[in-house]
């Protein structure tokens, strides 16, 4: 019997380049495929991607790249992507499919899992293989991060997960890796033409893309007024970081909603999260508590944010932040 593969669903940007989150999926998938001793594949749907883009997936861990090329696939439209994925899955019968827990993955995967009559686990932070059964164990936070749940799909196939971005390091690029690029012909009848994509536009504010930021500098009510958000922006610029905000800051109109971190905003998982003037309401913590390093600056020693911090300073942010910025700049210049 042919060995049933582990699949990763790659994402592409508007320029038809592979998004880095696709490499994170390969890092996750590599571990699973190795344990199961099966090939790892990347699925790419797009419009005329350069061959180097497809090869990059191999350098980053894929054994095979299934490549569906069509003009209509330049943009993600869930109905098209779901139809094509169903078709591929029926033909090739993978045992596991993982996608990123992004706006694309969290739209495509539930749509697809219904059509395939199989289970899906959202926003996993860890994936393992159960030794005795070879089944996929999916670990995810729930109830605002108050509990962790381990979930499996015991009887149906494929087993499907979306995985939280930034929850794993990508594999080092290895140009000696060999793999196969398999072009798949697209049957036009799989294109659902009901939804019309009318174009993209960027947010007006800078650095909104929090889910791909390695560092997030986030501000809370402790900033006191809108103008003081410039402290956060300056520090973020210096650290090449994304800008986050607590719900209060967004509700007061100091910054736009895409910056909101927490239960009613984004769930982020950066390497470093700097919480400045954020007290750490449970709803906020739910959106950032899995960050690898949490740094807090707050004047209230009782603030809950300190309980989950790796490093904290109790003090006046209006003294600390300018001094921090000054010292960072000095160090940069002297190095």
């Amino acid at each position: 019997m042919k060995k049933k593969e582990v699949w990763t669903v790659s994402e592409i940007n508007q320029q038809q380049e592979i998004k880095p989150v696709s490499f994170e999926l390969l890092a996750r998938g590599r571990k699973l495929a190795q344990e199961l001793e099966v090939p790892l594949s990347a699925i790419v749907l797009g419009d005329s991607l350069a061959e180097r883009e497809l090869k990059e997936l191999i350098y980053r861990g894929a054994d095979k790249v299934y490549w569906v090329n069509h003009k209509a696939l330049a943009r993600f439209v869930v109905e098209n992507h779901s139809n094509i994925m169903q078709h591929l899955i029926k033909n090739y019968q993978p045992q596991i499919i993982i996608a990123a827990a992004t706006t694309q993955g969290r739209t495509l995967m539930p749509h697809l899992s219904i059509r395939l009559d199989t289970g899906l686990t959202a926003d996993c932070t860890d994936l393992q293989i159960e030794k005795e059964t070879g089944l996929l164990l999916q670990i995810r936070p729930a109830i605002g991060g108050n509990i962790m749940a381990m979930i499996k799909t015991p009887e149906r196939k494929p087993q499907m997960s979306t995985v939280r971005p930034k929850s794993i390091q990508v594999l080092p690029r290895d140009e000696t890796r060999e793999g196969k690029i398999i072009p798949v012909d697209l049957d036009d009848s799989l294109l659902d033409r009901r939804v019309t994509h009318l174009g993209y536009y960027k947010s007006e504010e800078e650095e909104v893309n929090l889910s791909s930021a390695d560092i997030i500098v986030a501000g809370g009510r402790g900033l006191k007024k809108k103008e003081n958000l410039s402290l956060i922006r300056d520090l973020a610029r210096g650290l090449d970081a994304g800008i986050g905000a607590s719900r209060e800051v967004v509700d007061r109109g100091w910054i736009s909603y895409p910056h909101q971190v927490g239960l009613s905003g984004k769930t982020v998982n950066p390497k470093t999260y700097l919480a400045i003037g954020i007290s750490g309401a449970i709803q906020h913590l739910a959106g950032m508590k899995t960050a690898k390093n949490i740094i807090a600056i707050n004047s209230d020693p009782q603030a809950d944010i300190f309980k989950i911090s790796d490093f904290g300073i109790i003090g006046d942010l209006f003294e600390i932040i300018p001094l921090l910025k000054k010292k960072l700049e000095e160090k940069k210049l002297s190095s």
Binding site: A142, M150, I151, K289, S309, F311
Partner: peptide, 18 residues
């Protein structure tokens, strides 16, 4: 299709330097 194998409390406190 899915089954919860188990749930547990994540580690919430970190022993940070304050």
């Amino acid at each position: 299709p899915t089954r919860v194998v188990r749930i547990y409390r994540p580690q919430v406190t970190r022993k940070g330097t304050i």
